[in-house]
Nucleic acid binder design. Structure first.
Lengths: 357, 357
DNA sequence: CTGTTAGCGCATTCAT
DNA sequence: ATGAATGCGCTAACAG
């Protein structure tokens, strides 16, 4: 006989077996009866600090444990107009970047006894907005989002939900923002390539309208400028956010231009670029160097391992969560906060001296 | 006059700016007034089907949209004793296996208008139990878990929560279960190796107490038996669930035994094995073949690409979610359901004929 | 088909 | 320090 079973039969005699989906759980009332106090005292003893004598507090705690009481979040949220569920809105959990981000967020939230409601929006504005509405319905106090559209943070904020934009920033609109210092990272990586003698570097990139792509492009340009090199605009190869497309774009880049190095703006594009290089049996880095922004595990497993920029994605996630929680707790001044996490260049085997032409 | 009344009458005039964290959202009452019907009619018009005239239904919908009404899940859940939040309890979101599983689950849940509350337990029994309690508090109708301990599914079920165990099974205890057919997959992979002439195959494995490890080991043995080969027990190399440990174990295996192929029981161990092989500059597959259970993206990016068993992890996740939803909706007969998802052998370049000794 | 009534379980007034 | 009363916003019973 289970602990719960005992508790119940002690209360009402024979009680039907808990058929799943239809179990009556103990309430504050039950705890109150068990401890010989009033329901409000139970509430105070369990949560608030200072308004219950140690004696009563212990009695209540013991009673709660005994009958297996578990507080009902829905009731608590309804009454107190607060929730410990946090919305996390990302594009694609299968992309290790987002998975790491979510992992960092979850870790921090869990430590603070908050829960993560995770929604994939597949990068689709409609799904993103839909998700925002759902989170609104859940009355979450805050949301962390890698925004697709400015409308999403906006509608959340208009309804009093704290928003932290992760990884990218869309205009001035939405709330606090935590991002990798894309420009600095891309610049450092480009400097590394130029330092190796590369002057014709192809940049494989999918977008420049978000702060991520814009920043990485800016860093790419800044490094060239620093070395007095002019950027050949034809070497900036725009593609779509998709490994296959990136592969085709890489092929085109290789066919049309005599590049000695390729800088992929993110981990997805890098996959396509690498596939094309392998297919052509171009030895890396002797014939061509390859580097990527956003270090993910496979990049250190391939031969040669890729030179990358590590965004500290998990830490990025933790930072988002810490910032959001501080905001929710009212610990932050009202003005919008922008946190930049410094990336780190990791030099591996895929980049080497430019071949003599 | 109540504060609510005041706030509402104020709405006709100038509306106060929504200060974040303290916004009064419209309620059914507000919609009712706007549409000229009663609150319960609003509720029915918005949710239940058939109990409201089309005319009224449209009026209510329009009114709700007009004033920006978003239902309060907490209140709804409290009253109706149902929730659309589903708990998902996994070990490590950063492992692509779990990420894919979660992605499949989320996809299916979202399509059914359920939400995913994702918790990482880091494979720690205490954290897992803690998470179960949290989900209990949230009054979720169901949980999908990759269980660490049988206690977790049990406590959930004892409280009337539907449980689907994903990927592994701990005794008979917990609820429905969805798993890869580990034995069949491992057997097929082993057959492939034996078919290539390998007779001394090292099995790199971390556990055999769960159905995953046990099944893979069983498949490994079954294939040997089928070919009339005796399994050399010394070639079953136990290690811990960690790439570095797997690497050291691989080193030991190579030092002590003359294996011509290595079968890694999962993606994490494969990483360690590959690292060691690369470090020793053993050419794969000429000197040694390498294969792994659980296909993850990097395995097709390395050179040569790894021969693997694809578990259809995303589909595994979708299946879990579909099963759980069917259970919640009461569409399933009471008896426990065990679903096996057939895996698929993917032969790539890392496995080849056994070298003549 | 619709309105009225009555809580879901809890945290918060307000009294003592 | 504790207890009694009061809703949070919603939906399930009941009438009509």
């Amino acid at each position: 006989m289970t602990q719960r079973g005992q508790a119940r039969s002690a209360r009402t005699g024979a009680q039907p077996e808990p058929r799943s989906g239809a179990v009556r759980r103990p309430t504050v009332q039950d705890v109150a009866r068990e401890a010989g106090v009033s329901p409000s005292t139970v509430s105070r003893a369990l949560h608030t600090r200072g308004y219950a004598s140690p004696d009563v507090r212990n009695r209540v705690r013991a009673a709660a444990a005994k009958i297996g009481y578990v507080a009902d979040h829905n009731a608590r949220n309804l009454r107190s107009r607060t929730s410990t569920s946090i919305g996390v809105l990302i594009s694609d959990l299968r992309n290790p970047f987002y998975a790491d981000l979510a992992a960092g967020i979850e870790e921090e939230l869990r430590a603070a006894e908050y829960q993560m409601v995770l929604v994939n929006d597949n990068g689709d504005p409609a799904e993103e907005l839909q998700a925002a509405e759902t989170l609104l319905a859940m009355r979450v106090p805050g949301v962390i989002v890698t925004p697709v559209t400015a409308a999403c943070p906006r509608v959340l904020q208009d309804n009093g939900v704290h928003v932290v934009c992760a990884d990218r920033e869309l205009g001035r609109s939405g709330g606090d923002v935590v991002l990798s210092d894309n420009k600095a990272g891309a610049r450092e990586l480009t400097e590394h390539l130029i330092g190796l003698g590369h002057t014709r570097i192809g940049l494989l990139i999918d977008e420049t309208k978000w702060s991520t792509g814009a920043g990485r492009l800016a860093g790419f340009r800044a490094a060239h400028e620093e070395f007095g090199l002019e950027v050949d605009e034809d070497l900036i190869a725009y593609t779509s956010f998709d490994a296959d497309a990136a592969r085709r774009t890489t092929a085109k880049l290789l066919n049309d231009h005599d590049v000695t190095a390729i800088f992929s703006a993110n981990n997805v594009l890098a996959q396509g670029a690498l596939a094309e290089l392998k297919d052509r049996r171009l030895t890396v880095p002797r014939r061509i160097s390859l580097a990527a922004y956003d270090d993910v595990p496979w990049m250190s497993l391939v031969q040669p391992a890729l030179t990358t920029v590590d965004q500290h994605t998990v830490e990025l996630g933790r930072t988002c969560a810490r910032l959001l929680l501080a905001r929710i707790r009212g610990e932050l001044p009202p003005r919008r906060r922008r946190v930049r996490v410094a990336p780190r260049l990791i030099i591996r085997g895929s980049t080497g001296p430019a071949p003599r032409s």
